[in-house]
């Protein structure tokens, strides 16, 4: 990978993260002010007295915008990494957390725990995400050579089943809870808070860390099970760990902000176009591009119109034409 690409991949996210702080419905903050507020925050953390012109703006910056930005970045990175990992493990460029049923399963799990608050939302989302992907895998497993198409079809069906269950839950729930479930399934970043960041940060960083540590094995998995055995590696354990980690970060993301469709499918393809097909660099690119891209989409969704467009709707609206373009241009290289 060229040096300019690497530096671009690192610098752009930092700039976008910083500038996103200035955007929002309560007004734009220009760069000098932003720098000053950041300095003031750092200074007060160190115990130095500083004078801030607007205390409301200060609260908005640190209590509303920063957690939202961090959560968005994390979720974007998580979905993109999960998508890339699943595409490699299942040797299939058209799977993503959504198409394998993880998202629908996790959404159902989360809605269930919203209705009956017996189990924590995160855990419930995770458990049902795992259940969904396991069923998908079992349904499509046909011996040594699992077909790429059967897996996507199985995922669609399992996704459909869990969406149906979710509808049943929505039908049974009272209007107040119904609204929160519906809003949440559309992908809602506006409910971000420090509490949500704290709940999501551990499973997501842990999952991404595991994937980062094992990312050199992804190319091997992508060549197929027999090819791994052929060079003396038992792929089963790595495969399980990878799918587990991908499920964990997807489920945590879904639990935190709801369903954001297509995102985990598209970003790995963009990464592959930028840094090549190798998963060792692909995982890193997915983190940076995924986080930045979702952040940009969120910036648009909260500034473009006077009201906020749910981010799930926005990724679908942006993602579809982009994906069609990539497909027509044959930039997506698949021999499925």
């Amino acid at each position: 990978m060229q040096v300019w690409k690497i530096s671009l991949l690192v610098i752009v996210p930092i700039v976008v993260l910083f500038l996103s702080l200035g955007l929002g419905s309560t007004g734009f903050v220009n760069i000098p002010d932003l720098l000053y507020y950041s300095y003031a925050a750092c200074a007060s953390a160190l115990g130095i007295e500083t004078v801030v012109a607007d205390h409301n703006l200060e609260t908005i910056l640190w209590q509303v915008r920063l957690p939202r930005i961090l959560l968005t970045f994390m979720v974007g990175a998580a979905l993109a990494v999960a998508g890339g990992v699943l595409q490699a493990v299942f040797r299939n460029p058209i799977v993503d957390p959504f198409s394998l049923g993880i998202s629908s399963g996790a959404a159902f799990g989360a809605a269930l725990s919203m209705l009956i608050s017996l189990i924590p939302l995160n855990l419930s989302a995770f458990v049902f995400g795992v259940i969904a992907v396991v069923i998908t895998y079992l349904v499509s497993y046909t011996g040594a050579k699992g077909s790429l198409v059967t897996m996507v079809l199985a995922g669609m069906i399992i996704s459909g089943v869990f969406t149906a269950f979710l509808t049943v839950l929505q039908y049974l729930s009272d209007p107040y809870k119904l609204q929160s479930i519906v809003q949440w399934t559309m992908g809602n970043l506006h409910t971000a808070s420090w509490a949500k960041v704290r709940t999501a940060v551990i499973p997501i960083t842990l999952g991404i860390a595991i994937i980062l540590a094992l990312r050199w094995k992804l190319d091997l998995l992508a060549l197929g099970e027999q090819e791994a055995i052929a060079v003396g590696v038992d792929p089963k354990i790595i495969k399980l760990v990878m799918i587990g980690a991908a499920t964990m970060i997807t489920a945590s993301s879904v639990a935190a902000v709801g369903m954001i469709s297509l995102f985990g499918l598209i970003v790995p393809h963009i990464s592959r176009m930028l840094v090549g097909p190798s998963n060792a660099s692909g995982v890193l690119a997915n983190i940076l591009i995924g986080g930045t891209f979702l952040l940009l989409i969120d910036d648009f969704s909260r500034t473009l119109l006077p009201f906020e467009i749910p981010v799930g709707v926005f990724t679908m609206m942006l993602g579809t034409p982009l994906f069609i373009y990539l497909m027509r241009k044959n930039a997506i290289n698949w021999n499925a």
């Binding site: 190319d219 091997l220 992508a222 060549l223 090819e227 791994a228 060079v231 590696v233 090549g276």
Partner: peptide
């Protein structure tokens, strides 16, 4: 294989163990 890995990367997977 589905993904257009480079020749180097494909051969490198032989060293995975």
């Amino acid at each position: 294989t589905t993904f257009p890995f480079s020749v180097f990367d494909v051969v490198m997977t032989g060293r995975a163990s």
